[in-house]
Amino acid sequence: MSTIELANVSRWYGNVVAVNDITMTIGPGVTGLLGPNGAGKSTVLHLIAGFLAPSRGKLTVGDVPSWRNPDIYRTVGLVPERDSVYAFLTGEEFVLATARLHELADPAGATRRAIAIVDMAEAQDRRISTYSKGMRQRIKVAAALVHDPQVLLLDEPFNGMDPRQRLHMMDLLTKLGAEGRTILLSSHILEEVERLADTIQVIVSGRLAASGDFRAIRRLMTSRPHVFLVRTSDDRLLGSALIGRPAVAGVELTHGGLQVRASDYGTFSRELAVLARNQGVRLREVLPEDESLESVFAYLIET
């Protein structure tokens, strides 16, 4: 009942394709939906949550379509990205109202349990309007968990949280995943997902760029060629020395300095300073040119 399945799902708005032919299966445990901003992560989450109709393809949560099917919310909890909650309610009132909307047998008991899970008992009697961003996020998680769902969908859950709140949320999601729930969270920050998710689905430009075990994909990411801009006291001399090294795939003399393509990031990083010293060249600046997540994802698409 807790498996999410997308089969050739596309979603477009007029001529713009937001999600392009995505096929994936998400089972119990924590799965990270990773990709740069605007890649289509939220669109995929909204499709799964039943808040968008697929333009093409089939999408099911626990074997039933989520679109126009409010009954799926008996097994699905959603934590939307937008920080809009009923700010005039207290935390407890908000979670209790959600429990009642789910028509739970013991809404008060379920509310107490959900608030305890997110560690918000002390602040439960305060109005949500007085909460910090992190507290709002936690009370949203409590409301999403109040009916004990098997599937929990979270859209950028760490946005606006301070480091301590992030750690708390990570521990909570890890625990929920270990209990056998299907936890799907979207993020554009690699390190967040790295600490949490067993498997990842990488979305780039609306397409599924990589899918599977996080460590294997991480290795792929770190072993890709890295481009550095190196400024020195003698670019030509250092360039000729660098091209002889196996860790370097190419060197180009530019007006701004040396553009070096390293095939082995680790070895190049260790050798560069030694090589410069041996050649009597002073290093003025070493800048990684392609460290943005977008370039990492772009590399994943090419491989």
Binding site: P70, D71, Y73, L101
Partner: peptide, 15 residues
């Protein structure tokens, strides 16, 4: 407008 309707619609309550 403010998006809070999502919390209401993410429940099985009939539309």
């Amino acid at each position: 407008d403010d998006g809070s309707i999502v919390h209401l619609l993410a429940t099985p309550v009939r539309r």
